[in-house]
Design a protein around this nucleic acid. Structure first.
Lengths: 165, 165
DNA sequence: AAGATACGTCAGCCTTGTTGACATTCCAAG
DNA sequence: CTTGGAATGTCAACAAGGCTGACGTATCTT
């Protein structure tokens, strides 16, 4: 018993194992956000600002609407964050050339500097985890995460995946 | 080049790969919380209630202080959540037998029912992801997550890990 | 008897999510 | 060409859930 077509054990699908995965996800996510959060604290920004800056960096010139669907918040919520970033000179908003209703978003030098500081910190933790776990584990890590996403999120993820930056 | 002691490629540690991991983590976490969030919405509870209920279920009789250090929030914040759960009859708070200053927390039948509903939903998504990725991937997934945790969070994680429930 | 610990609570603040209402801009149908 | 609907963005107000600070009350511990 406990065997499958391929002769693989199904023990990894027990409620017990799933629960461990759930708790691992919970505790790990705390670590995942800890370093950026610490940096942002000093600058009176929050996690929402981090997310905005990250995705603007990833897709320079993106529109507000696109950002909205990536972040999955209301435009009013995003707008507040965006406004402070623009006021503080981290983000530049340019009226669309073709469609003047659209705003295209870009990081300024200052904005790019913050992005770098945040992603350096976050990448550092990630790198340590990757190194500790090894390449095989990392491949599995990514596979499970991808399978966990909602369809629309996976769409966004895939779209960004192969961007050269 | 690109070889290590063990002859392994280091390509999985490039900034590019790390960035993909970071984005995967972000998008996946959304999926991870999506189903419970939907259920909670109807009941006018939030993610904070879910967390409390989850860990009380995992460690029946746990004290407020212990819960505090697992959740990493202030007692005022936890108290607000706990109060509504107690008022609504989902959680029972018993004065400690040995140390009467302590309150030991238990789920009532109603509380356990909610916990089951939430964890069923969350487990279902996890199970689908696990099944899609396979046992090897799942092992890697767990390894990377564990390596990503802060020391104290790992302590809590390990403590819960082998509880039979 | 004094100090430390566990818990609860009040008050007030911040971030970040939400709706609702409204202005502007664009586009397409009449 | 105009006009109405769709897309986009802004302002206002509210709620959840973090936070700090201050305080009160039991209960241990020394």
């Amino acid at each position: 018993m406990n065997d499958v077509a391929g002769g693989q054990s199904l023990l990894y699908l027990t409620d017990e194992q799933l629960r461990k995965g759930i708790e691992a996800m919970f505790f790990a996510y705390r670590g995942f956000t800890a370093d950026p959060d610490r940096i942002l604290e000093d600058k009176s920004y929050g996690r929402a600002h981090h997310r905005a800056v990250h995705f603007i960096h990833r897709s320079p010139g993106t529109t507000v609407n696109n950002l909205l669907s990536i972040l999955g918040v209301t435009k009013q919520s995003l707008n507040r964050v965006l406004r402070t970033l623009i006021e503080d000179g981290l983000v530049e908003s340019r009226v669309g050339k073709e469609d003047k209703r659209e705003r295209h978003l870009y990081l300024t030098e200052t904005g790019a500097a913050l992005e770098r500081e945040l992603s350096d910190a976050q990448r550092e933790r990630m790198r340590a985890a990757y190194r500790a776990a090894g390449p095989q584990a990392v491949a599995g890590f990514r596979q499970v995460l991808e399978a966990m996403m909602d369809v629309e999120m996976r769409r966004h993820y895939e779209a960004l995946k192969d961007k050269t930056t």
